[in-house]
Design a protein around this nucleic acid. Structure first.
Lengths: 204, 204
DNA sequence: GTCTATACACTGATAGAC
DNA sequence: GTCTATCAGTGTATAGAC
């Protein structure tokens, strides 16, 4: 959440990380180059050294970087979680909550239309590959062969992402001290077992 | 989706409806007063006749109006659906999909910080009352008394809203011709019955 | 790598005519 | 109710010094 910028970090990484933090928080349109420069303690014009293409290039670089990190991280989290679907979803949720919020919905609806059509299309593909695809695989492999939900693993993946991102974006006072990861696990449990049949968290 | 502006409509309503359509699509920061004026076929300065307070007042009015409409519509949809939780959730989803997308997450994360703190707080309360509360009641009443999920009806309500809004915001090519309402019902079914136990839609 | 200075377009907003 | 005209402020971007 609090993207701390480590002191020992390549200048380029500091710029990208700071920009990512702000874009992730408020979206493309609401962040100005001055906001980013101020957060870095430099002047707005200096950003053009790191991103000659200006705001759009900065956003595209930052978003691409974040999505690639998610693709790897989400894949790893799922693979290392072993065989059970529940454990894999717990791990995926844990990863997503450990990262700056992605806000897939805002990205598609608000941010993409604001940049050039060509770049937007590339990002849309990257976003699908990084966020939906790994989850889709988990659902597909984790579901019983005769489950009618198996054919709709993409939809389940999208819905899962929505739920976890929703938890991620929750304001603090909604939480009552409960950690977001616990809330995510509760929602995963109800979803796997059915809302009414859900009894308690089962380890597997 | 396609907010058609009827010819026989009070001028004020035309302005508010057009502004709502644009704000709902792209968010507060990405919409300019000229965008709204252009869509109405009038000049930017003319908007100050309808909203003397300018862009922020316009946004607040529009959002409040939309939220109030949701509060009533969601409540009615749930009440008229009868007793079963499934039927109530179907009806709630149907209502949400019939309206311009709300994008609760973007609203809290991107739009609210851009307006004055006082107005933002009022809208946050309205949003909770209009969107979360009716769903929370449905979950609370619909769940078995001994269900451990009963105590967390708020969380279920928030997750439900995330999922349906996620479906709502889906780009066309994700749908493969399947109606959004059908996808919503599928997701509700899996959630009620448990992903693996889900067999087929049950009428109740 | 970062700065100052500046050009230039866009945005929100006000004043006043019709 | 809508217009024209106008302005101050902000935002992106470029040029060139250090």
């Amino acid at each position: 959440m609090n993207t701390v910028v480590e002191p020992a970090m390549s200048p380029r990484d500091r710029v990208l990380q700071t920009a990512e933090h702000l874009f992730s928080e408020r979206g493309y349109a609401a962040v100005t180059l001055r906001d980013i420069a101020d957060a870095l303690g430099i002047k707005q014009a200096s950003l053009y050294y790191h991103a000659p293409g200006g705001k759009e290039e900065l956003f595209v670089q930052v978003t691409e970087r974040g999505l690639e990190r998610h693709r790897v991280g989400l894949d790893n989290a799922i693979n290392e979680a072993g065989d059970g679907l529940r454990a894999q979803l717990y791990a995926a949720a844990g990863w997503l909550l450990s990262q700056p919020s992605i806000n897939y919905g805002r990205m598609l609806q608000s941010d993409m239309p604001a940049i050039s059509a060509h770049e937007a299309e590339r990002l849309r593909v990257s976003a699908f590959t990084a966020l939906i695809a790994p989850l889709q695989r988990a659902f597909d492999e984790g579901l019983a062969d005769d489950s009618p939900a198996k054919a709709k693993a993409v939809h389940l993946a999208g819905a899962f992402l929505s739920v976890i991102e929703g938890v991620h974006n929750l304001p603090e006072h909604f939480l009552n001290g409960e950690p977001k990861a616990a809330m995510a696990r509760f929602l995963i449990d109800t979803w796997l077992e059915g809302i009414n049949h859900h009894s308690k968290t089962i380890q597997d």
